[in-house]
Computed example of a mutant assay.
Amino acid sequence: MPLNTHGGLLSFGHCGVAGGMAHVVETWQQMTGQAGARQIKPPRRAFIHADGGVMSSHVSLLLSRED
């Protein structure tokens, strides 16, 4: 199961700024087949989790695509 296809927050952004949105953008690109060299087989479902501050806020998002 592919995880962090854009490198994750260690190599792409950091929490507290726009790191969570980077996950959303990467997921959308993967799900629509627009991720370029990072492209995996476009998933039907995806789970995104991000945090901000010093473990003070968390958010999870489930996405699915219709064919």
Rank of each mutant, 00 (worst) to 15 (best):
L3K: 14
L3A: 13
V24N: 04
Q34P: 00
C15T: 15
A35K: 10
D51E: 12
A37T: 14
L61I: 14
S57N: 14
V17M: 06
A46V: 07
I48G: 10
G52F: 03
G52A: 15
A18L: 08
V17C: 03
V25C: 02
Q29M: 15
G8S: 05
A46I: 07
G7K: 11
L10N: 10
D67M: 06
D67A: 14
M31P: 04
L62H: 07
Q30C: 02
H6A: 14
V17L: 12
V25N: 10
S60I: 08
F12G: 01
R44E: 13
F47H: 14
G13V: 06
V24K: 02
R44W: 00
L61K: 07
Q39L: 09
L9K: 09
H49D: 02
H6E: 10
A18V: 07
H23R: 12
R45N: 07
R45G: 00
K41M: 05
W28T: 13
M31S: 11
P42F: 11
G53C: 04
I48C: 09
H49Y: 13
S60A: 15
E66S: 12
G20S: 13
A37P: 14
L10C: 01
E26Q: 13
A37F: 02
S60R: 03
A37V: 07
S64Q: 10
G19W: 11
F47V: 07
A35F: 15
N4T: 04
A22W: 10
T32N: 05
F12C: 15
H49V: 03
F12Q: 09
G13C: 04
R45L: 03
S60N: 03
